[in-house]
């Protein structure tokens, strides 16, 4: 696949082949990550997160790729490794990545606080009911109409599906608020 083909299929929502193609870089990148002092599990997480960020970036129609796609992927991995090393209070072995593209937070639109917030919200989604998760996926990800959702999930009416969605989001919101207040209470 060419870079353009990958970008085009990702923007069309046909991501599987593109992901599979990009995943071929994993062994090489994993080797670099391991050399940087991180373990295999983290290496996989870092790579998967980097791939995720790359795909998100490519989905943005305003994003213009200025390097080879794989070069950009290496760059994101370098960035993520650096973050992880910082998080683990380890010294970054920049040398391993000496010929890799340098990408900054700004280039990537990466905000540590926001990422933490999203990560927390992700955990919260595991605490809500399965029904709520289905609603969220159908509504926010599949972009389905409430009418369609009410039929798919066997609600008696569109209004009751809407009410359920509202309750679900409120539940998630309450859990998020609870987490924020707990975190604040731990601060000195």
């Amino acid at each position: 696949m060419t870079d353009q083909e990958i970008i085009s299929s990702i923007r069309k929502g046909e991501r599987e082949q593109a992901i599979r193609f990009l995943y071929q870089e994993f062994p090489k990148i994993k080797a670099l990550i391991l050399k940087s002092g991180l373990n295999e599990v983290v290496a996989k997480e870092v790579f998967n997160d980097s791939l995720l960020l790359l795909i998100e970036k490519l989905q943005d129609p305003n994003f213009e790729l200025t390097s080879k796609l794989t070069t950009y992927l290496y760059g994101i991995n370098r960035f993520m490794v650096k973050n992880e090393m910082r998080r683990q209070n380890k010294t970054a072995y920049e040398l391993e990545w000496s010929d890799t593209l340098i990408i900054s937070d700004a280039d990537l639109g990466y905000d540590v606080e926001k990422e933490e917030r999203l990560s927390q919200l992700d955990k919260i989604l595991t605490q809500v009911s399965e029904k709520c998760r289905q609603i969220f996926e159908l509504f926010y990800f599949r972009k389905q109409s409430m009418e369609h959702i009410s039929k798919t999930l066997n609600y008696s009416s569109v209004n009751s599906a809407k009410t359920q969605k509202y309750k679900c989001i409120e539940q998630a919101y309450q859990l998020a608020q609870k987490h924020v207040s707990q975190t604040e209470s731990l601060l000195p």
């Binding site: 995720l52 998100e56 999203l118 919200l121 992700d122 989604l125 969220f136 996926e137 926010y140 990800f141 989001i169 998630a172």
Partner: peptide, 8 residues
């Protein structure tokens, strides 16, 4: 929420 659900 949209971002997290998409990411999942």
């Amino acid at each position: 929420m949209v971002r997290v659900v998409e990411r999942r």
